[in-house]
């Protein structure tokens, strides 16, 4: 098999004396949807924050292998914006949209690291700046069409209904042109109808060639989407495998349902 797109080696994170994450290994291969699940407080979001550069992990390595065959990139110590530039984008568990900006502008922000015009270009409206702006608007609009928000381009993000805000977050992340997309509980708070749409959306994104790593509590969604599941508890990996393997793993059942008294 080819090199995994994302390769995490023995990643650890300590806050003071608390071990939030302990020697976690994880791989995402090209075109895969990989899920990271576990009870609340298991360290899933900590994992995301370490991988994306918001936290600086205390041990271990994170490598990104661009699918075009370029050299592996070591992500440790990079800032969040640099990580995004390398081709990995994320969404947030508690929605973090730019509330007072329009839907389109939110997505345009995602294009920031793929464009380069600056003060001079903005003030004098040079030809390259104008071309870049036009491209940004067009591409952002296309992405919004993809997630089904094309009719709300000029709405303020804060005025969108909840499910649409979630989709806008995904659109914004897609605008950074990532080959790996990290989704942090994309279905949280969604109704079954919205979850169904999300399922289709994520599948479509995968079919376009993005690899996806997602944290999710909605087991139905996880089981139907994922190619591979990692289960963590108390910062340690307790199981990995296909949805079927994981759902019958005794350690997972124990972590989720507690131990059987008779056993």
């Amino acid at each position: 098999m080819s090199r995994p797109v994302l390769q995490v080696d023995k990643l650890s994170m300590e806050f003071g004396g608390i071990r939030a994450m302990c020697e976690l290994d994880l791989e995402v291969h090209k075109g895969q949807i990989v899920a990271l699940i576990g009870p609340n407080g298991a360290g899933k979001t900590t994992f995301f924050n370490c991988v994306t550069g918001i936290y600086r992990p205390t041990g271990g390595n994170v490598f990104l292998n661009p699918p075009n065959g370029a050299k592996p990139i070591r992500l440790n110590g990079l800032k969040p914006n640099q990580v995004t530039e390398k081709g990995m984008a994320r969404t947030f568990q508690n929605i973090r949209l730019f509330q007072k900006m329009t839907v389109l502008e939110n997505v345009m922000i995602g294009r920031h690291c793929r464009t380069s015009s600056y003060i001079f270009g903005a003030v004098f409206r040079t030809r390259s700046t104008l071309r870049e702006e036009r491209e940004t608007v067009e591409k952002s609009h296309l992405i919004l069409q993809k997630v089904g928000l094309a009719n709300a381009v000029n709405e303020l993000a804060e005025n969108l209904p909840y499910g649409a805000q979630r989709r806008l977050e995904i659109a914004r992340a897609l605008a950074t042109e990532p080959f790996l997309l990290l989704l942090d509980e994309p279905a949280a708070g969604m109704n079954p109808q919205e979850t169904q749409e999300l399922d289709e959306l994520i599948n479509r994104i995968r079919d376009e060639g993005h690899s996806i790593l997602l944290i999710e509590h909605d087991m139905k969604l996880v089981m139907s989407l994922s190619d591979k599941i990692y289960v963590v508890d108390y910062g340690r990996k307790i199981a990995e495998g296909s949805p079927r393997e994981v759902s019958s793993d005794p350690a997972v059942i124990k972590a989720y349902l507690g131990e059987d008294i008779d056993a």
Partner: peptide
Amino acid sequence: RLQDSRIGRAWVALREDEIACQAMGIDK
């Protein structure tokens, strides 16, 4: 001209949410 440009949008994004702004590839 600045406020509707790439850099102007980055400023507003920075105002709205610093962490998300960085995660979207903007150099804080």
